[in-house]
């Protein structure tokens, strides 16, 4: 059984069928790149996996556990969220927190939730909270160092370049130790000279063996790092295969046309 299984995933916005039955699988440690022209439902697919949209049909299982459809109480929803991490095109850092706080915030709040759930009170609560906070800060520092921002931990998002902000966002997503990390065009909002530093960080994560789904228009990058390429067109997976299969021997006319266009742009 594959680590992530998506079966016949469907999503409509009103009358528009954005996902018309998307099915694919991926194993632990694999990297899947999703390519395709604008408006074909790539972002919607990631948003469905991250519960930012509720699918209209289909099945999602991670590690054998069905996460959609599922009885959604709020609590369950946030537990499921921990399985996926998401890095957004436009970073969405929290402006009032510095880089370090951006990374620790959700970790610390998760500790609060756990303490509440275990009904721990008083001095014991204080002690556990303090311990956890210190541990979280250590982890956050090491994550920020790993994305090359050891010297920017005390800087606020408005004091960071786009590339630095995106690297903070990556560290922030990693902090929740997701099983599967999703990137939605992580470099599209960046100046060309800044995309390199972000792609390098993502490459580093891939080399560590993380399970990653990345929506991207960086064809060269997708080709180099992916185990599988998904080409989406009109709300379905038009073609799926290894980079060689998709880039060198595309079967579908749509894929060929898309790749020809992508080549032109370079």
């Amino acid at each position: 059984m594959a680590f992530l299984e998506v079966k016949d995933l469907r999503k409509n916005f009103g009358d528009t069928n954005v996902l018309k039955g998307v099915s694919f699988e991926m194993n632990k440690g694999e990297v899947v790149s999703v390519i395709g022209s604008s408006g074909n439902g790539k972002t919607t697919l990631l948003r469905c996996l991250n519960f930012l949209e509720t699918p209209d049909g289909g099945l999602i299982t991670v590690d054998g556990a069905q996460i959609f459809p599922v009885e959604t109480t709020n609590k369950k929803k946030s537990q499921c969220n921990a399985r996926f991490g998401m890095v957004f095109q436009n970073f969405n850092l929290f402006p009032q927190y510095d880089a370090l706080e951006n990374v620790t915030l959700a970790m610390n709040l998760r500790v609060e939730n756990e303490l509440k759930e275990r009904k721990i009170k008083g001095a014991e609560k204080k002690r556990l909270r303090k311990e956890a906070k210190e541990k979280n800060e250590e982890l956050a520092k090491s994550l920020l160092s790993r994305v090359g921002l050891a010297d920017k931990m005390a800087n606020y998002p408005c004091e960071l370049s786009g590339g630095q902000q995106q690297r903070v966002a990556i560290a922030r997503a990693l902090a929740m130790s997701p099983d599967i990390l999703c990137f939605d065009e992580p470099t599209s909002a960046l100046d060309p000279e800044l995309t390199g530093e972000v792609l390098k960080v993502i490459k580093g994560l891939i080399d560590e063996g993380r399970t990653i789904i990345i929506v991207t228009h960086e064809m060269g990058f997708a080709r180099n790092v992916s185990d599988k390429i998904i080409f989406m067109a009109n709300g379905v997976i038009e073609e799926i295969g290894t980079p060689e299969q998709i880039f060198d021997h595309p079967k579908s006319e749509n894929t060929k046309a898309f790749l020809a266009k992508a080549d032109e742009q370079i």
Partner: peptide, 12 residues
């Protein structure tokens, strides 16, 4: 995006 970032990070 601020709400969504919080949501994917598991915040209530």
């Amino acid at each position: 995006g601020q709400y969504e970032a919080g949501q994917v990070l598991g915040m209530t």
